[in-house]
Design a binder for these strands. Structure first.
Lengths: 123, 123
DNA sequence: GTCGTTGCAAAGCGTTTGCAGCCTA
DNA sequence: TAGGCTGCAAACGCTTTGCAACGAC
């Protein structure tokens, strides 16, 4: 059974405030604003437990470790800024996925990641 | 300047024969059929050098390390089988990417990964 | 013979785990 | 007070690097 600790509250708050997918190190930096001395092991453990609880979901990005965002968002995709390395949520999806796959293959899902420069870095 | 060693030839041959993106361990297994005692460090070093030469390109997959395939293929995407974990090339692309991105963002590229079960594993 | 390449082992690096003490309920 | 939670440090797994021996040219 789960306890409400300062650490867990700070980690959840970090996600709620960020409104974009965060990696473990980003979470550590943000949550340390609330809890001094927070350890990276606690961040990893808490992320895993929040994923198990269904409060967070993993965001898979090509060639790098997963980041995480609150679960329950509508189906959407992500934009990664080449310059600041932050990831942003995008609304909407694309069509015509099924026609890319051979008929003998079973299509069960897809991931789409757009890359470029975010508003801040494009300026 | 670059030398033609048995190891390098075996690693290139592995990619040519496989006709799908390979990870370092897959390369090791395949290339060891030609060169007994091949070391994993050599595989990593050779992959890096082939990428630098422009003979290989990295294939980024969500939540896992890059795989590699010969460079120069037409723009395409990938299908990852949930069951056997192999990755296959797909032809074609999708439309309507630009409309997903806020106008203030600069879109420079995209990655699309379809997941499901391959012909073999769907049977 | 030169010097790039190789295999081994050690070092890195991000992530996970063991453990004693802490703190929530 | 009990037992989950935390921080530290050690352990892990994958990738990279140092080094002496090897081998392509």
């Amino acid at each position: 059974m789960e306890r409400n600790t300062r650490q867990r509250a700070a980690i959840r708050a970090a996600f709620s405030r960020a409104r974009r997918p965060l990696g473990p190190t980003e979470v550590l930096e943000l949550a340390r604003q609330d809890v001094d001395g927070l350890g990276i092991a606690t961040v990893y453990r808490t992320i895993k437990s929040l994923v198990d609880d269904g409060w967070l979901t993993a965001v898979g990005l090509p060639g790098e470790p997963d980041r995480y965002e609150p679960a329950g968002l509508a189906h959407h995709h992500h934009f990664r800024c080449k310059s600041c390395d932050r990831v942003f949520d995008l609304e909407g999806c694309v069509e015509g996925l099924k026609k890319l796959v051979p008929k003998s293959f079973q299509l069960e899902g897809h991931e789409l990641i757009l890359v470029g420069r975010c508003k801040q870095c494009a300026a």
